[in-house]
Computed example of a mutant assay.
Amino acid sequence: MPTTLATWNINSVRLRAGLVEKLLSEQAPDVLCLQECKSPVAKIPHDVFAALGYHHMVARGEKGYNGVAILSKLPLEDVGDKDFAGLGHARHVAAKLENGLTIHNFYVPAGGDIPDREKNVKFGQKLDYVAEMRDWFAAERPEKAILVGDLNIAPMEDDVWDHKKMLKVISHTPVEVEALQQAQDAGGWVDVTRKDLPVGKLYSWWSYRARDWNEANKGRRLDHVWATPDIVNASHSSRVLRDARGWEKPSDHAPVFATFDL
């Protein structure tokens, strides 16, 4: 049965509940993973989403910051979360569908502005977080799993608007790219988006700072869909819903989709 997943950094699920409604109504993914919900779980407007058929939710939240949620038309079992790097943040949650597919929803720390852990604690936290992801994947060797989320790293040259200019900008520095690759390799994960769309510039985030984000098009692919090797051949139809970045009072991220025939 085809199962379509979407991942979206919503930048406040309560502020942008209407945009989530719009996405669910118009695109109707089976599962929507949200990051940066900025809400305690009890205050996520789940009733609004349930009215559209998304009766199931697994989430972790905190007031005003971070937060991850998995909304689903399909029954979900909460299978826990991990506090990578001991930050005490709501940045990971996992759920399992009845067909045995495990979905990991991640919100990796952004890392601040200075790519130097000696000068910037947040950058060190980001590197530590990704390193602990790597170690966990190496120990667990996940199977029949999908990893989605805002990983806050654009790994490939075509994942940023200007590779050379971005080499010293957090999200595309060589140390981050290498760290993410190590985490990916440790779990045997395959980048589904780039499997389906291997050639050309591809972005999922455009800064609020740009006067005209669409015209400037200085984007980065920070949002990812990965799969374990045992199911990656079942994946197809990856896309970024760029139009969502232009909706009224939008998130600075656009949703990323993939479908799995499982």
Rank of each mutant, 00 (worst) to 15 (best):
M1E: 10
M1P: 13
T4E: 15
L5M: 12
A6N: 03
S12H: 13
A17S: 15
A17T: 07
G18A: 11
G18D: 15
V20M: 04
K22F: 02
P29M: 00
D30L: 00
D30E: 10
V31N: 10
C33Y: 06
L34K: 09
Q35P: 11
E36W: 04
E36D: 13
K38T: 05
P40C: 00
P40Q: 07
V41Y: 06
K43R: 15
F49L: 08
A50I: 01
L52W: 06
H56R: 03
A59D: 13
A59F: 13
L71K: 06
S72M: 07
L74S: 08
L76Y: 10
V79A: 01
V79S: 08
D81E: 15
K82G: 01
D83K: 06
F84Q: 02
F84I: 01
G86R: 00
L87S: 11
H89G: 01
A90H: 10
R91L: 03
A95P: 13
A95M: 10
L97V: 09
L101G: 08
I103V: 13
H104G: 12
N105W: 05
Y107E: 08
D113M: 08
D116V: 08
D116Y: 09
E118N: 15
V121Y: 10
V121P: 11
K122T: 05
F123T: 06
Q125A: 07
L127W: 10
L127G: 12
A131I: 01
R134T: 09
D135W: 04
W136N: 10
F137R: 12
P142W: 02
K144F: 05
K144N: 15
A145T: 14
L151K: 07
N152G: 09
N152P: 11
P155C: 02
D159R: 00
D162V: 01
D162M: 01
K165I: 00
M166F: 02
L167I: 05
K168T: 14
I170G: 10
H172L: 06
H172S: 08
P174N: 01
V175C: 03
V177W: 02
A183E: 04
G187Q: 04
G187D: 06
V190Q: 12
D191H: 07
D191S: 09
V192E: 03
T193G: 09
R194T: 06
K195D: 06
L197M: 14
P198Q: 05
P198D: 08
V199K: 14
G200S: 04
K201N: 12
Y203N: 09
S204I: 01
Y208E: 05
R209N: 10
A210E: 15
D212H: 07
N214M: 10
E215Q: 14
A216T: 14
N217S: 11
K218D: 06
R220I: 09
R220W: 15
L222K: 13
H224R: 03
H224Q: 08
H224W: 14
H224D: 03
V225H: 04
W226Y: 15
I231D: 02
I231K: 03
H236W: 02
S237D: 15
R239N: 11
D243Y: 01
W247F: 09
W247G: 04
W247Y: 08
P250S: 00
P250M: 01
H253Q: 11
H253G: 11
V256F: 04
T259Q: 02
D261H: 03
D261A: 04
L262S: 06
